[in-house]
Design a protein around this nucleic acid. Structure first.
Lengths: 174, 174
DNA sequence: TGCTTTTAGGTGTCCGTGCAACGTTCTAAG
DNA sequence: CTTAGAACGTTGCACGGACACCTAAAAGCA
C-alpha cells in the first residue's frame, strides 16, 4: 500500500496499533460483561466507585471525577444520577465554592464496590496479566507512562495537536 | 489494599491495566476527532472502509465485517445504512447464499478512504508510534499477539471464561 | 422427502454519551 | 464596586450502538 509509505509507516506498525485497539476493547468487554452478569454493575459505574473510594474523604468534585473516568461532564451528571438513585453515591455541596458539588461514596456504594472488586480483579488477571511474560510488566508500564504523558501534554490544547498534524481547516483533501 | 492481595495483584499491575485503558481511549479520541473535523468521517466508518478496501473484491459479508470491526450485527446494519446513503458502500446479494449480503466498497468510498487515510496514519504515528522507543514495536507486537490469541480462544466460548472466574450466574460475553 | 434447527441479516426499542446552550457563582480588570 | 469573563454543573437534543425478536434461507436429520 502506497499510502503507508507516504506516511512512513510499516504494515507492522499499523498492525500493532490495530491489535492494541482490538485487545483493549475485547478485554474491556469481558470485564464489563462479567461485572454486569454477576453484579449488575456497568464498568463505568465501577470506575466511578473506584475513583471515589480511592479519593480522600471518599469524595470528588464532579469535574475532577469526570476527567478521571474519561467522561464528559454531562455524561458524568447522568451517571451520578443513576448511582444516586441506587443509593451508591450522594451529592454534597462544596462549602468553599457554591457552584461546586462533591460526589460522595455512600456506605452502600462502598459495599457494592467491595462485592464487585474480586470479579474485576480476577478479570484483569485472567484476561490480561496472566498473558504477560514475567518481567514484561515493567517494560509495558514504562511505555504506557510515556504514552500517557505525551497524551496529557498535547490534549492540554487539542487545537495545537491538529495544527501540528498539518490540518488546514475543513476542506476535504484536493 | 487488601483486595488486591486477595487476588494476587500488585498495585503496579492494576495501574498498568488502567493506563492501557486510558491511553487507548485517548488516542482513539484523538484519531476520531481529527478524522471528524477534517473529513467528517467517524472512526467506525473509517474502519469499515478500510476493511472493505483490504478485502478481496473490495467486499465482505455483513457478518464477517461486523466481527472485524467489533460491532454487533445490528450495529453494522445501521452503519452500512448510513454509508450506503452517502454512497460509500453498496449492498450486493450473494449468489451462493440467498440470505447473504455483501457490503461492497464503491469508487466514491475508496476515494473517501484515500482522502482520509493520511490524517489517520499521521495520527497513529504522532499519537502512538512516535512515542515508542526504537525496537519496542517488536516486543509490543509479540505481547499483543499473545493477548489477542488468548482472547480469541476464550471468547470462542465465553461460558468457560466466566466459569473459570468462579461465576455462577448466566453466561456473559457478547 | 418433510421436518426441525441453525444461520444471515434487519427492525423495534431502549440506554448511554457527547455537544451546545443555560443559569449560577467565582474571579479579574477597571 | 462594577462589570466582563471564566468555571461548574445541569438540561435539551440527537446520535450511535446493543439486545431481543423477526423473517427468510440453508443445513441437518429422519
Amino acid at each position: 500500500m502506497t499510502l503507508l509509505r507516504d506516511e512512513g509507516l510499516t504494515i507492522e506498525e499499523l498492525a500493532v496499533w490495530r491489535m492494541l485497539q482490538r485487545v483493549q476493547v475485547r478485554i474491556t468487554r469481558h470485564l464489563e460483561s462479567e461485572l454486569l452478569v454477576v453484579h449488575d454493575l456497568p464498568l463505568a459505574s465501577y470506575d466511578v466507585l473506584t475513583q471515589l473510594a480511592e479519593a480522600p474523604g471518599r469524595r470528588l468534585r464532579m469535574n475532577d471525577l469526570a476527567e478521571r473516568v474519561l467522561l464528559s461532564r454531562s455524561g458524568l451528571t447522568r451517571l451520578i444520577d443513576r448511582l444516586q438513585r441506587d443509593g451508591l453515591v450522594a451529592r454534597e455541596a462544596c462549602e468553599s465554592d457554591a457552584r461546586g458539588l462533591f460526589a460522595v461514596l455512600t456506605d452502600a456504594g462502598a459495599e457494592r464496590l467491595a462485592d464487585a472488586t474480586p470479579i474485576y480483579l480476577h478479570g484483569v488477571r485472567s484476561h490480561f496479566l496472566d498473558r504477560l511474560e514475567p518481567g514484561e510488566i515493567g517494560h509495558i508500564r514504562a511505555m504506557l507512562a510515556r504514552l500517557a504523558d505525551h497524551d496529557a501534554a498535547d490534549s492540554a490544547d487539542a487545537a495545537d495537536a491538529t495544527d501540528a498534524a498539518g490540518i488546514s481547516g475543513a476542506t476535504g483533501a484536493p
